[in-house]
């Protein structure tokens, strides 16, 4: 087994060990904190597909995170106020049923990524970063100024949405649900990275002209990757809304986009467990340093600077070395 596989296994085990210990020790807050790390890691796994594999520096992934969150919040809002989401031409009711909420979140985020991607992928470099940021901010200001769903105040989900066979209000059960979803996303991300599509996408990141001369269109690869990326981040948004039982425009803000990007850079760009390691470290720092100082983000900034200057591969790259291509 390679060093990276061992490291990944250790991270995966650590993410289970902490909440199990907290459950036994009666520390529900720690479970919630780990769940938060898991959900943010999932958002990072989504962004990593566009950023790590595709080289698409999206500074607007909060858009998909927030859309997923609002999908959960709006559906739950209509279910708990017993008002239909839409009454003409046919009635659509709200729902508290997680699988339906997730499906809606993934579809909405995917459609948004399709439109935003189709427009912004015509540019590259700094322009791409700025356009994705602009779209994210558009949605942010739209959410703030739309009073129907709380505007600036956001939406409250009174009781966490339901999943058949589970009591989602029990922290450890909700954690397990999120952990399994992260596991599935990581499995997909692993297969994706080694698939023909992943190969072509990674090639297009390094040398787009070369990819064209073998008869593959980089734009189609990138747009597809961008949509998949947005869908996974959207799913994370729906879970995040349920974790907090609250959705607000801050989920759509550019700071959120930046945080998701920080997870990846801290953990290791393009590495399978990069976003997991990064999100876990970020939440740990928030927890431990946040208690010491209100300005804990200064330390994160310093750490980020160190990683960018001296450890480009992030946590995974530093501990596991260069990725093994194949035998």
């Amino acid at each position: 087994m390679g060093r990276e596989t061992l490291l990944n296994a250790a991270i995966a085990l650590g993410l289970v060990a902490v909440p199990v210990w907290a459950h036994l020790a009666g520390e529900p807050f720690i479970i919630t904190l780990t769940t938060k790390a898991v959900i943010l890691a999932l958002a990072g796994v989504g962004l990593n597909i566009a950023l790590g594999h595709g080289g698409l520096i999206s500074f607007g992934h909060a858009a998909y995170f927030g859309l997923g969150g609002y999908a959960a919040g709006i559906l739950a809002h209509h279910a708990q106020t017993f008002t239909p989401l839409m009454s003409a031409p046919f009635i659509i009711e709200g729902t508290k049923f997680m699988p339906v909420i997730w499906l809606v979140a993934v579809i909405v985020a995917g459609l948004a990524a399709l439109v935003i991607g189709a427009l912004s992928l015509r540019t590259s470099g700094v322009y791409f970063i700025m356009i994705t940021l602009a779209f994210g901010q558009m949605l942010f200001f739209f959410a703030i100024s739309w009073p129907a769903y709380g505007g600036e105040d956001g939406l409250v989900i009174y009781v966490r949405n339901e999943f058949p066979g589970l009591n989602t209000l029990d922290p450890i059960q909700f954690f397990a649900l999120c952990y399994v979803i992260l596991g599935l996303a990581l499995w997909f991300s692993h297969r994706f990275g080694r698939s023909p599509f992943g190969l072509a996408l990674n090639a297009a990141r390094q040398n787009a002209e070369r990819v064209q001369t073998v008869g593959i269109r980089p734009f189609r690869l990138r747009l597809t990757a961008f949509v998949i990326s947005g869908m996974i981040t959207g799913l994370a948004g729906a879970l995040f809304a349920d974790l907090n039982r609250f959705v607000s425009p801050s989920m759509l803000s550019w700071q959120t986009s930046g945080e998701i990007m920080i997870f990846i850079i801290l953990g290791g760009v393009g590495r399978l467990y990069g976003p997991v390691a990064g999100a876990a470290l970020f939440i740990a720092l928030e927890h431990f340093l946040g208690g010491v100082s209100d300005y804990w983000l200064v330390f994160v900034g310093a750490l980020l600077l160190l990683v960018v200057l001296f450890a480009r591969g992030g946590i995974i790259g530093t501990l596991a070395g260069r990725e093994v291509a194949h035998d």
């Binding site: 297969r191 994706f192 072509a200 990819v211 593959i216």
Partner: peptide
């Protein structure tokens, strides 16, 4: 590229 089989996501390249 020659075979047009780049749009497969789960099987190994």
């Amino acid at each position: 590229g020659a075979r047009g089989t780049s749009f497969h996501f789960l099987r190994g390249a």
